[in-house]
Nucleic acid binder design. Structure first.
Lengths: 126, 126, 126, 126
DNA sequence: GTGGTCTAGACCACC
DNA sequence: GTGGTCTAGACCACG
């Protein structure tokens, strides 16, 4: 499982991890029922504090996206993909709405907003 | 000068103040060479600590948007409006680009992105 | 890390700290990627308030010389040394130019200026 | 009498005034026994607070460079020119020494210092 | 443990 | 009156 963290980001590390796992589930990169790396392994791989990894996993458990297989570790739950896809869409919808709201509040004219949104670069991911 | 603070926001108070002043300059609500409220006045008006206001003002000074008139207070510098307008545009351009980048990284399909951006509600500010 | 403060100086304490760290980076006394003393440690060492230290560090962060490792502390960024060396040179160049400008404005004759600059004592630092 | 002040300078206005008068005396722009502008006139001319002008004049009086002519105003004292010339030289000597000291303390190499001092632009005053 | 934010209030120089 | 600096100490999120 490929996860990358930016230790200088203002986004907490545990959130970076959780987000990337959520999106991986939504994208099908990890399948339902599949195991995710153990807290120890992932922590070692990313050279971060195990508490941080554990906190990310706790978040995902609370959302029902992963669950404990006694003695084995954590696995993606059945139905997680659908949840993640909905989450993902909602997340970006809210984000976009926030963007528009803030632009309006800052007295940007509609033309300026349109201009910004038009010359977006359609870059490929990664 | 009308400034509004949301103490529950995750954005620090001093940044909220700085942002609103920047946008006020960009919008022409405060003119160049005009004095902005004194640290003590604004602090009283917003019922916050003077240090918090002072920190917002220090930010703006560092950006060259306001400058000290010793013993008199702080005044919007000449050229500040142009800087703020550019800043504002750049700010939202980057924000929008970040939105697109993150969407791409999360493997959202182009159709999903377009769908999100189409049913935006053109709500009026405030 | 050795930092010395002169509380009687007209230069603010937080600037004294920032300056000494900048010069330490330029001189290679602290290396890139190395951690600098924690806010609490340095404050205790200098017997000053943590806020004062924090303000010095914030300055350096704004200049991109040090960056936050969340939960760990602050580390010198890669590239900081080069920036500091350039900064340092520019700083003294400007200072020297200011000196010459002011001398000229005060109608000092070229002979007087030369005389001042010749009998400089080449004293060793500290 | 031509005096120019920079309200945004970090140097206090009263010092800017005092400095310029001292240097004008040293340069012979104002002669001994000559009257200098009244507090009211200079304040109006520079659009500054009369207290500020008065403070500058008080400084110069304390140094014996100007003195009260009852009922007439303030005049440059006899011998002021010589004092100012000495002051001026001392002032720039100290300034230059401070420059060298600080450069040494910041671990600038002798070569760097020499380099800075060589490519000085010999610009004409004003 | 780390830094970041905020409050409260003192003291200073300047105008 | 103005802002700038500094101290003291609380609270928070993060690792």
């Amino acid at each position: 499982m490929f996860i990358e963290i930016d230790p200088t980001s203002s986004q907490p590390i545990f959130e970076q991890i959780a987000m990337q796992i959520r999106f991986a589930i939504a994208a099908g990169t990890v399948r339902e029922e599949e195991m995710i790396p153990s807290v120890r392994d992932l922590s070692k791989q990313l050279t971060i504090n195990p508490n941080t990894t554990a906190r990310a996993y706790r978040l995902l458990q609370d959302e029902g996206l992963i669950s404990l297989r006694r003695g084995m570790g954590l696995a993606v739950t059945v139905g997680a993909k659908e949840i993640c896809r909905r989450q993902r869409k909602l997340f970006f919808q809210q984000k976009f709405q926030l963007f528009l709201d803030e632009a309006a509040r800052s007295r940007l004219s509609q033309e300026e907003i349109d201009e910004i949104m038009e010359n977006r670069k359609c870059q490929t991911p990664f």
